[in-house]
Design a protein around this nucleic acid. Structure first.
Lengths: 150, 150
DNA sequence: TTATTAATTTATAATCATTATAAATAGTGT
DNA sequence: ACACTATTTATAATGATTATAAATTAATAA
């Protein structure tokens, strides 16, 4: 059983224990997110599954992404682009974003817990989590002399 | 001359040197952003200036925010809410966001340059910048027993 | 296996935030 | 003061997302 298959199984178990039904559409969207390395938009997912589910409605994709986000299986990335992107949660990692082509690449880094603690101290907030993104230019765009999209 | 007035003067100088005209609307939007501690949306700004500029169009606000962002005077914050928020750039700082009421508070922390360097090494990107936000619950919402909006 | 129920999908209208457009206005340089 | 071009204005258009009502279906109990 591959890591992908384990992630999918765990995700389906999570859904079951929260009383969410496992429909073929949900299964397919989850599978796509787990296997996808591109942090897709809702429309990307809708188009990717179009062949396999010709009658799937874009509202189904949005509805299910909201369910997955609420259950904690998926994170919604709201960087730069007009449309949100979605990332299956596989363990803490950060994102590197190319400001030229928009590509998002995961990278691992030891957790920045000391920033959270410091921030809690100076602001008085009860801290829950943090997000960090690094922005730059991917090797492909550097090679082509790409410029930042503004 | 207060810090606010100096920021405004510098900003107007920056605009002049880039060939951008100083209109009363631009002046007012900049002033609002510099004095505002709330990281307002475009609509917040539009409504706040409505009294002083009854004929100002919401398109003017959006257009000018885009100009300020392009020139580097303002950063667009795309966290959580549907609408973007805007932050006058006064020096590097990070944001603490209340997941209950949406309030955003600035805090300073020594720059996380080592994350940028590490990320550049593992991904091969040419790194430009980073963003970090910490999420939690503000003291006011903690006091009221507030819960995360999802 | 079947019936039932409530969750979910579907198709599409509605909403919201932002941008595009064309005409009118105005900032700046000479 | 005038000319030129940037900008504002009013509002239509766009794209992403959500709301709605009818139809479909997943899961469970018998």
């Amino acid at each position: 059983m591959t890591m992908s298959e384990m992630h999918l199984k765990d995700a389906l178990d999570t859904l079951k224990t929260t009383g969410v039904r496992i429909t073929p559409q949900r299964h397919a969207i989850l599978e796509y997110l787990i296997q996808s390395m591109i942090h897709p938009t809702a429309d990307d997912i809708y188009k990717a599954l179009c062949g396999k589910f010709p009658n799937m409605s874009v509202a189904t994709v949005y509805n299910n992404l909201r369910v997955f986000r609420e259950v904690g299986l998926v994170k919604e990335l709201t960087y730069g682009d007009a449309a949100s992107r979605f990332d299956f949660v596989t363990g803490d990692h950060y994102h590197m974003i190319c400001e030229c082509c928009g590509k998002i690449v995961d990278f691992h880094y030891p957790g920045l817990n000391e920033v959270e603690q410091f921030a809690s101290q100076v602001t008085g907030f009860e801290v829950n989590s943090h997000r960090l993104e690094v922005y730059g230019t991917c090797p492909e765009c550097v090679a082509v002399g790409g410029k930042k999209v503004q």
